[in-house]
Design a protein around this nucleic acid. Structure first.
Lengths: 339, 339
DNA sequence: CTGTTAGCGCCTTCAT
DNA sequence: ATGAAGGCGCTAACAG
């Protein structure tokens, strides 16, 4: 169904002038006779002329497009980050191409290749939980295309990244549990491929240690974030001879799953089991009891990632200094930890 | 920070051969000597060669890219549609560029122009609630670029569209309310710029009429879907001298807002007021009481839109016949209508 | 103020 | 099996 689209040559021919003049009129170049310009603009409007961005990009070696790769966008988190980034990028005149890797390493690689082929000017990424090899992102670096990681970052690449303070968030969460009287605090952690999982785990450990509570490896379970399996691990914890009196989950969906298991087993929350999540999912505010959680400035995460990228886009390659932005996290107390 | 990217000319020069041969080797053309081909492929891998899609698209007048414009993507609905569409389009070798208009007519127009400039091969759209003028989409049609509307469609354009059966969904919802004993059934409707709002309103009216219940205009309120205002309308309805005993809301977020108002006012749901929504938002399943609602096959909506578009992409322009796909809706009964 | 020319990176005839 | 040449649509010198 491909058809010929009107070009500046068509307009030039129709008006009996050269395509240079048409180009100048259309781009607002001053050196064009007023009347000629008007004739050209009228004709362009009449035939629905739209500049061919492909040709311009090919010529200028700039697409004005930034790629964003996220592992998923069903949960409210990534869409909100994207919106923040997009607003900010639009302000600087950039378009956005969104790819979702669906938590698949292979898809992520193919996304990266496609963005490279379409010549994006920069890249914003949160990688999949399967990603251990970052070669597909290193190509961008080698070609001088700025890359900014957010949320899940790559520590052995010399690139900018924007995160929230996962360590402190986890620390606050566990501290809160301790201060409300819990002593056997379990942690249902994420995979150790993810920086944020590791940081949250460290925050959990340090909070316990800080308050003189021994870290019991039996109470720490790492899992792959496949929600179907969360209930297995929760049940396992609750079946221990000496079960936990509190659970800090890697994220809200996991905590909500735990809440549902507890309800099914007739375990009272927060009396018998206190629950705390991470991310402040919209559901956490409406469920009964409300889920205590750690909130993070989601939209700002996207904005900051975009700002860091734009700054880098304006920097000469030899002056590049990677930036590390860390945004604060907050404890939101609800009914799953206190009455 | 723009740098030179490796081209086939660089490879050709390095190997002392012509760029034609390099091009042939890279595209898998048979007429290339086996050894030469291998040398070329090795060199390409070594220098991270990535084909320049811009140049190819310019040459072939095909980008292999489809644009999707949605009014928002915070709610679970549009992301899920996009995922469905993307999977299906990927299967046919198309990439996707996602734009969100943020329910703003102006942004939508500018999105459409940008997609036109970047020469997408096709367009999938759900328009904003402000959109009354569809000229920016008609340009695509005139240029022979297929457009498929979904969810919110444009009735006076001769294009394909994919929707769910809003009319029947609304009918089922109201019928359910009637069959559970309600007689004063209010409808908090959406703006009449949206086809789905209008269809749901018609389903509501017809169900009442069908069961011999007079349609009371006092019980029908159209609003702009700005959730902050929903509670005003709900309160207004509940303050009527003869208040409703049931409310059918245009969508789940609106119904959930109504539920929260009812709770605040001490009105018992479902005893004093039955509530029913539309769309089966994830929150509706977890809230207390659960929200009765109309579910729709969201991912399939995206898949179908993509399939219709791909078919059209393969059709000659003079053989084009617009398709109208309507997917079924289902009543999901929860605690907000029955004990 | 306007036209001519070159070239961005690639594929595709047309020769050889 | 390979090379040379043309052109996709556009902008940017360079002439006039």
């Amino acid at each position: 169904m491909a058809t010929h689209q009107t070009t500046i040559i068509d307009i030039a021919r129709a008006l009996g002038i050269s395509k240079s003049t048409v180009s100048r009129a259309l781009t607002g170049h001053p050196n064009v006779n007023g009347k000629t310009r008007q004739r050209i603009l009228d004709m362009a409007a009449q035939v629905d002329y739209q500049r061919n961005q492909l040709a311009i990009s090919l010529l200028t070696n700039r697409t004005g497009t930034v790629g964003i790769i996220v592992p998923e966008f069903i949960s409210y988190f990534f869409p909100k980050v994207i919106i923040g980034a997009q607003e900010e990028l639009a302000r600087s005149g950039y378009n956005v191409v969104i790819c979702h890797s669906n938590e698949s390493y292979e898809t992520e690689v193919s996304n990266a290749k496609a963005l490279l082929a379409s010549r994006v000017d920069g890249l914003i990424v949160s990688h999949t939980k399967e990603t251990r090899n970052f070669d597909h992102f290193k190509i961008f670096q080698r070609k001088g295309i700025p890359v900014v990681f957010f949320n899940r970052v790559c520590e052995d690449m010399n690139v900018s990244n924007v995160t929230v303070d996962d360590y402190n968030g986890a620390f606050l969460a566990v501290e809160h549990l301790i201060q409300t009287g819990r002593r056997r605090i379990a942690h249902l952690a994420g995979p150790d491929t993810l920086t944020n999982s590791r940081n949250r785990l460290n925050g959990y450990r340090d909070a316990l240690t800080r308050y003189g509570i021994p870290v019991d490896p039996e109470l720490i379970i790492s899992y792959d974030l496949n929600l179907d399996k969360a209930n297995i691990y929760v049940n396992h914890l609750l079946n221990l001879p000496n079960p936990p009196d509190a659970l800090f989950a890697i994220n809200d969906p996991t905590a909500l799953e735990a809440l549902s298991v507890a309800k099914r087993r007739g375990i009272r929350v927060p009396d018998d089991l206190a629950l705390i999540g991470f991310s402040d999912d919209p559901i956490s505010a409406v469920i009964e009891p409300g889920l205590t959680t750690i909130s993070q400035p989601v939209t700002e995460l996207g904005q900051q990632a975009a700002q860091v990228l734009v700054r880098q886009l304006l920097t000469k390659e030899d002056e590049f200094q990677p930036e590390r932005v860390v945004l604060p996290t907050n404890l939101i107390i609800r009914g799953s930890t206190v009455k």
